[in-house]
Design a protein around this nucleic acid. Structure first.
Lengths: 171, 171
DNA sequence: CTCAAGCTTCACAAATTTGTGAAACCGCCG
DNA sequence: CGGCGGTTTCACAAATTTGTGAAGCTTGAG
């Protein structure tokens, strides 16, 4: 055990204010949940985001969020699936550590691309089935065009983010 | 009842192939559902998208999707809430028509902006609570910066979409 | 080879969500 | 002002989702 789990007074600036951390985690997780993310996945993600190393073990996550190992496992396997978190074996131990990607948002949004592709495909086929000259077909085709447009813009957008990120003064 | 609901052969090109419409609607709705949208709302939205006028009455939606008036009502009130659909009173009748916005994607994505603002706020506060010079604080601040960046880009992006849209040959 | 830490899987119980029928409501028509 | 088409609200039943405890599996350490 690395530290007591008490919520005792923060002894000076060196210690994290766990109360504040928890409030942030729960608040942000709730917003993600509202946006459609699974609750446990959102909480685990937010907790990782608020951790100093950007990485925690299953046990640490379980304790911080007060959830069972099973819940951690489920959340992590979802986050892994969508490539927001990766699993690392901690050398010299048999624990896994769950790690945020360092280019997190770049990766995540670039990945979204594939969802857009899938949507675009469905829409193109739908438009074809409706007949390109029917009003409905035209509307569906416009929607397809929108997602294709977004896809095209995404790369440039993410590159601009990278550039912008480099100019930030973090920490 | 406007027409039989059988899946008989489409009688010539003049008639919509309702089977194809339905397949498209269900497929696209499923994808939206996977992305976090309520099922009924997704189905109603997809059905409207595939309708010739971009507008349908409650009864038409109910018949096409084989759901109750109550379900239509619920779905529509959600879609109205998020400004993807608006309600119109059909003159000379006491039916409502549910109508897609014509600048649908422009509106919808511009609206998303407000979600980003909210997230950004939570993240900024979280970063402050964590301490700007702690690694965790820096990570959260970077995330806040990302959403602020996205917000800033969104306007230009949507304007480019409008311009691009104008060049499309629809129908 | 054996032990044991720790992750995952399974089956289940609880909680939430979903969609329905039925009743209430609203506004127009006669 | 009574009737009626149409929509919304309500309470409930069904289905899905969620999170847990406990058992099982995997793998490193000794």
């Amino acid at each position: 055990m690395l530290k007591t789990d008490g919520d005792g007074p923060a002894d000076a600036a060196s210690r994290r204010d766990e109360g504040a951390v928890s409030r942030f985690v729960e608040r942000f997780a709730a917003q993600l949940t509202d946006a459609g993310m699974q609750r446990m996945a959102a909480r685990v993600f937010a907790q990782l985001l608020a951790s100093d190393g950007g990485a925690m073990t299953s046990a640490e996550l379980g304790e911080a969020l007060r959830i069972s190992p099973a819940a951690v496992s489920g959340a992590v396997s979802y986050l892994t699936q969508v490539h927001m978190v990766s699993r690392e074996r901690e050398p010299g131990s048999r624990r896994d550590r769950y790690v945020l990607h360092n280019e997190l948002w770049y990766e995540t949004f670039t990945r979204r691309d594939q969802v857009l592709t899938q949507w675009g495909k469905t829409l193109r086929e739908g438009a074809a089935g409706l007949g390109a000259h029917s009003p409905a077909g035209a509307r569906v085709a416009e929607t397809a065009a929108f997602f294709e447009f977004m896809q095209g813009e995404m790369l440039g957008l993410m590159d601009r983010w990278r550039a912008h990120r480099a100019t930030l003064d973090l920490g």
